[in-house]
Design a binder for these strands. Sequence first.
DNA 1: TTTCTATGTAAGAAAACCTAACATTTAATT
DNA 2: AATTAAATGTTAGGTTTTCTTACATAGAAA
Lengths: 128, 128
Amino acid sequence: MTHRVRRTMPLLPISIVMQLTELTARQIRYYEEHGLIQPARSEGNKRMFSLNDVDTLLEIKDFLDQGINIAGIKKIHALRTQPKIEKTAPQTISDAELRQILRDEILNSNAFDRGGIRQGDLSRFFKK
Amino acid sequence: MTHRVRRTMPLLPISIVMQLTELTARQIRYYEEHGLIQPARSEGNKRMFSLNDVDTLLEIKDFLDQGINIAGIKKIHALRTQPKIEKTAPQTISDAELRQILRDEILNSNAFDRGGIRQGDLSRFFKK
DNA sequence: TTTCTATGTAAGAAAACCTAACATTTAATT
DNA sequence: AATTAAATGTTAGGTTTTCTTACATAGAAA
């Protein structure tokens, strides 16, 4: 009965992703610019996001809230998608280095509690 | 880790729904006009569809392919959302009547096999 | 033939999104 | 303190998408 949808399918326009993540369009495009996400494009060049993209963005947001900067997040992503250091090209960073980065970043963390809205409640974005 | 999304959340623009259902915008709006779906609206009045809406549209499409007309589908929906005939306002149609309708409709069914695309493959709608 | 149903098509307007550029804020560095 | 860099805000002009409304059409039904 229920129509199945893959989490990799590009379904969502940026406006919806903004609501789901509480990020601005500027932020989302900026993260893409830095290679943290690669949303698909419609034939007319509009960004179309998958549910996986939303997950990634929420994770990015979380990392940023923890004081980790884009460069750190980028490195974390790189390590995650390619954690095998065997026959692969020599890594430019070790696990120890990563932990060091994280520790360093966390020091100047300015995380704060933004009294946000409940996730999943989009009602205020639609007309009654 | 994975971000949960309710099937009732209005997330999808009509272009994506067109691709998921292989219906034209005209058809989708027509079905809405006849009350078969009630998509949400963005603040700017754009239709935003939920995954449930997609399910409903696929079902409508299936019924139409079976030769059932809009009126029949409308009645089927009405019966389904309110199948209790107890204290409710008197029904204008009985179960027997429904079966009759279905039998009648099926007689002049012009269902045919449209050699469509695999559902879920939207790749041809996006730029390489 | 005429009517009805479902859909196509076109026009004009409004909304959403795009890129590019410059501005602002805050933190780090010198 | 001044400068720089990172992240985000803001604005402008252009393109795409969606909207409503209206008229057209093919096929089935009357």
